[in-house]
Every structure is written in structure tokens, then in C-alpha cells.
């Protein structure tokens, strides 16, 4: 059992969720309420990671983050090391790659709030911030929660992008999915089996817990 790889995966998933939670709420809410020219294009871009093969995505990220790219060069100058082959690089890739998982369900959650309920909040003297806290989030919460669980579970299971971003440095970029692949390559089927089963258990637990929680939230609302 490669505990370092498992811990790295959980850390990556946790940070991805932490960064994407506010993005999910703000971008989901914005896309749900606003009508503007080019909204379809924005939504398509958000959906893109869902349809692209992770290797394609990873390839472009590698180009964008490499030492010769402006972003990569900036990172090198600012932090003294390059962005690819590091945890930070993985995290940036993971955040970008999970945008669709983080935004879409939240957007649907906010879209389900009747316009009049939002207007009523406003006419009841609530500022936009207060309305978000007291009315919109309590109603859109199941959508946001789904978004975060999908993001978490999806990050745990991501393989292609991490492989492309150089995921073989233990404790830095070697996640559990990569470790399992390595074990299989090294004919350590028992080790791969234990790690695979652990990943299944964690993912199953996360998703089941969410379903039960959102069912309870649903009962509270009705």
C-alpha cells in the first residue's frame, strides 16, 4: 500500500475542492441568473474538459505551463522552480480540469430557485450578499454539494492529465492512480489490488454520504 500516493491524492482532491468551492458558487450563480451574448460559448468552454480526452487537455497544459511559456516562465521567476512536475502544477491542472464538474451542478442548483423568491429576498431588504447566505445557498446547496463531491471523486480518479503533467515523483506528483498503474507495470498485482479496493471504498463512501446528506436536506426543504 502506497500511503504517500494515497495521501497525495487526498491532498490534491481536498485543495481542488477548497479552491473550486467559491468558484462553483459565484460562477454557477452568475451563469444561472445572467443572460448575455456569448453565454453559450462560455458554457461550452466550461463543458470542454468533460468531452476532451485528458491527454489532449494535459498536452495543452504542458505547453502552457512549460518553462518556455509565459506562465511557466513567470512561475519560474516568482517561485524559483518550474510549474510542471510539481504539486502546484498538478493542482492548477486539476482546478482547470474540474471546472465543469464544479460549475454545472451548482448552476443547475441556482437555476432551480424561482426568480420571484430572489426578488422577494431583495424586496425584504436583503443585500445581494445576505440573500446569497440566507436564501440562495440554503436552496441551491444540494447542487453545490454535488459539484464538490463530483470534483473530489473525479480528482481522486484522474489519471491521464497527471500522467501528462509528469506524475511520477513520489510525494510530489505521484497520485494513487499513477501508483496503481506503476504497480501493475511492475507485476505487483496484490499491491495494485489493495490500492484499487481502497480507492473504490473511499469513492463509494464519499458519494453515498453525499446522497444521504442531500436526501436529508431535501426532506428539510419540502
Amino acid at each position: 500500500m502506497d500511503w504517500i500516493a494515497l495521501f497525495l491524492s487526498l491532498r490534491l482532491a481536498g485543495w481542488t475542492v477548497a479552491i473550486l468551492l467559491p468558484v462553483s458558487v459565484l460562477a454557477g450563480r452568475w451563469l444561472a441568473y445572467r443572460q448575455f451574448r456569448g453565454k453559450g460559448l462560455v458554457e461550452a468552454v466550461v463543458m470542454l474538459p468533460l468531452v476532451l480526452p485528458p491527454t489532449v487537455f494535459g498536452f495543452y497544459l504542458l505547453l502552457a505551463f512549460g518553462r518556455n511559456s509565459p506562465i511557466g516562465a513567470f512561475w519560474q521567476v516568482t517561485f524559483g522552480h518550474q510549474l510542471v512536475f510539481t504539486f502546484e502544477g498538478l493542482l492548477v491542472a486539476s482546478v482547470i480540469f474540474n471546472l465543469s464538474f464544479a460549475i454545472q451542478p451548482a448552476q443547475r442548483g441556482f437555476e432551480a430557485i424561482p426568480v420571484e423568491v430572489r426578488e422577494a429576498a431583495s424586496c425584504s431588504g436583503m443585500s445581494p450578499m445576505r440573500s446569497l447566505w440566507r436564501v440562495e445557498l440554503p436552496l441551491a446547496w444540494p447542487g453545490v454539494l454535488t459539484a464538490m463531491v463530483l470534483t473530489f471523486a473525479h480528482t481522486l480518479g484522474e489519471f491521464g492529465i497527471i500522467l501528462m503533467m509528469g506524475g511520477s515523483i513520489p510525494g510530489e506528483t505521484k497520485t494513487i492512480a499513477i501508483a496503481i498503474y506503476d504497480r501493475v507495470q511492475g507485476f505487483d498485482m496484490a499491491g495494485a489490488g489493495i490500492m484499487s479496493a481502497t480507492l473504490v471504498a473511499i469513492s463509494l463512501f464519499t458519494i453515498a454520504a453525499t446522497y444521504m446528506l442531500s436526501a436529508r436536506v431535501g426532506r428539510r426543504l419540502s
Partner: peptide, 8 residues
């Protein structure tokens, strides 16, 4: 018109 009460 439809009261728009806060359902939660």
C-alpha cells in the same frame, strides 16, 4: 402573485 415565500 405566487407569494414567493422562502420555502426553507
Amino acid at each position: 402573485q405566487n407569494y414567493a415565500l422562502f420555502p426553507h
